[in-house]
Computed example of a mutant assay.
Amino acid sequence: MNYLQLYEALTGLLPKRIKITLINYNTGQEIGIFKIDASNLPEVFDKPLVIDIGNKRWRVMQAAPKTAADYLFSKKLILKVQDELLPANLLPFQAPTTAADKPAILPREPVDAVAKIAFDSKSVFAGASYNAAIPSVTGEIAKGGSQSPDPYILTIEETDWRQVELAAEDCLSVVTIDLHSVQQLLSEQPDALTGYRQQHTRSRQLTQTLLIPWNSFLDQLHKPVIGPLYLRRSGWVENGFTIASEHHTYYGISTNDHIRVLCLPAMPVMDDELMNIMEHFKLLLVDWCGAYCFGGITNPFEPQNNVK
């Protein structure tokens, strides 16, 4: 059962915030007590996680209780954490799987004047403006050095690249083979807060398989806001984009007015917007690290409780 979805249905009966006691993993001393919205917490603390609490990034080393089934009803959670920047006794891999491709990185930041247009959260792009936004942001290079990302840019970790992905339905057989491998790896190491001993590299057959017309995709969204994509440790993604709708944030690669890679920053709850996009463009929604997939006619990895 998806307890976070059940929680959403019961928000009128249960408090929306969870009391979190943060404890230093190395010293055992209490760092502080915080209240966090339940929607910002994972269903299960069973994989590497870095969280932002108290204006600082912490790596979760231990959690009690570990599941939403427990902490939603007790309204309490104890997290033993370590400063993300400190050396940690971690296993070699921070994700059970990785995409075969790595995005190309621009040597400079996009032109500031163009970026400000793309990042205007009040802008509503229409018609030909769609085509103008992406090539100028990803194609032109500033003469000066790189600067810190604008607040409207989606910034993701390198390990999160293509981990929640919208893939073509006709790739289901390849997706299934890769998901079997990830599922096997997860079954061998069910508790992985400190990382994974092994990592599965997915098939190159899934690299840039989409060919979705840029304008057609944006026509499916209400008031989309467009910007570039930034990898936290690498820089600006060449031909990368971010699209924020009223319900979801999408990112990926777009070339020649077509979307070639389409992803989400985290696994969402299914809603009308996603269902319409998947049906219109014949797409699968794949959670690679969770080893399951939504969509497709004969899909052995489809969850039964992910529709809102």
Rank of each mutant, 00 (worst) to 15 (best):
M1R: 12
N2A: 12
L4Y: 07
L6F: 07
E8G: 08
A9T: 12
L13K: 15
L14M: 14
P15E: 09
R17L: 09
K19V: 12
K19A: 13
L22Q: 01
I23Y: 02
N26L: 06
N26H: 08
N26P: 00
T27E: 02
T27K: 04
I31L: 10
F34Y: 14
E43R: 12
D46T: 14
K47R: 14
P48W: 05
L49P: 00
L49E: 01
I51W: 00
G54D: 07
R57S: 05
W58Y: 06
Q62Y: 06
A63D: 00
A64R: 05
F73T: 15
K76H: 13
K76G: 09
L79Q: 00
D83T: 04
D83E: 09
A88F: 07
T98D: 02
A100V: 14
D101K: 08
I105G: 13
L106P: 01
R108D: 04
R108I: 03
D112K: 15
D120S: 06
D120P: 02
K122C: 01
F125R: 02
F125W: 14
G127K: 09
Y130D: 04
A133E: 02
P135K: 10
V137L: 04
I141Y: 13
G144P: 08
G144M: 08
S148K: 15
P149Q: 09
P149A: 10
P149S: 11
D150A: 09
I156Y: 03
D160C: 04
E165K: 10
E169A: 08
V174L: 03
V174W: 00
T176P: 00
T176Q: 08
H180D: 07
Q183W: 00
Q183C: 02
L185S: 14
L186S: 07
E188W: 09
E188L: 15
P190H: 03
L193G: 07
Q199I: 15
R202G: 03
Q208N: 15
S216K: 02
D219Y: 05
Q220A: 12
Q220V: 11
H222Q: 11
H222F: 12
H222Y: 10
H222T: 14
P224S: 02
I226Y: 01
G227N: 12
Y230T: 14
R233I: 14
F241I: 14
F241P: 05
S245F: 04
H247S: 13
Y251G: 03
G252V: 05
G252S: 06
T255W: 01
R260Y: 09
V261A: 08
C263N: 11
L264D: 03
L264H: 08
A266L: 03
I277Q: 03
M278L: 05
E279S: 12
H280F: 10
H280M: 06
H280I: 11
L283H: 01
D287N: 15
A291V: 07
A291I: 05
A291N: 03
C293T: 12
F294D: 02
G296I: 07
P300T: 13
E302H: 13
Q304N: 11
